[in-house]
């Protein structure tokens, strides 16, 4: 395969991008941060984290043999 020929063809078919950002995206960024800072229904993932931690602790307590395995995957 002639790699240079293919490169040239590709460059002609898909020209490089020359556009620039035309507006400040900070207001949109703030909206995104606000939206995520106020979770719907007063729910957040801390519950999931806590449940996961309890699950892991329970597993370790009842099956101590699993501790090295858990440590390996940490």
């Amino acid at each position: 395969m002639n790699v240079d020929r293919m490169k040239k063809l590709l460059q002609q078919a898909v020209p490089p991008v020359k556009d620039e950002l035309e507006r400040d995206l900070w207001p949109a960024m703030l909206r995104r941060m606000d939206r995520t800072a106020a979770p719907a229904f007063g729910f957040n993932w801390a519950w999931f984290d806590a449940a996961l931690a309890i699950g892991v602790a329970t597993l370790a307590a009842f099956f101590p043999v699993s501790i090295p395995l858990l440590l390996y995957y940490l």
Partner: peptide, 24 residues
């Protein structure tokens, strides 16, 4: 860095509207 990140993403996705969303 927003301009540099935007241009980098635009080079990949080649769609200005999507590039703005992806910059955010």
């Amino acid at each position: 860095h927003q301009r540099a990140v935007y241009v980098w993403i635009l080079r990949i996705v080649r769609n200005p509207a999507a590039a703005e969303d992806l910059t955010i």
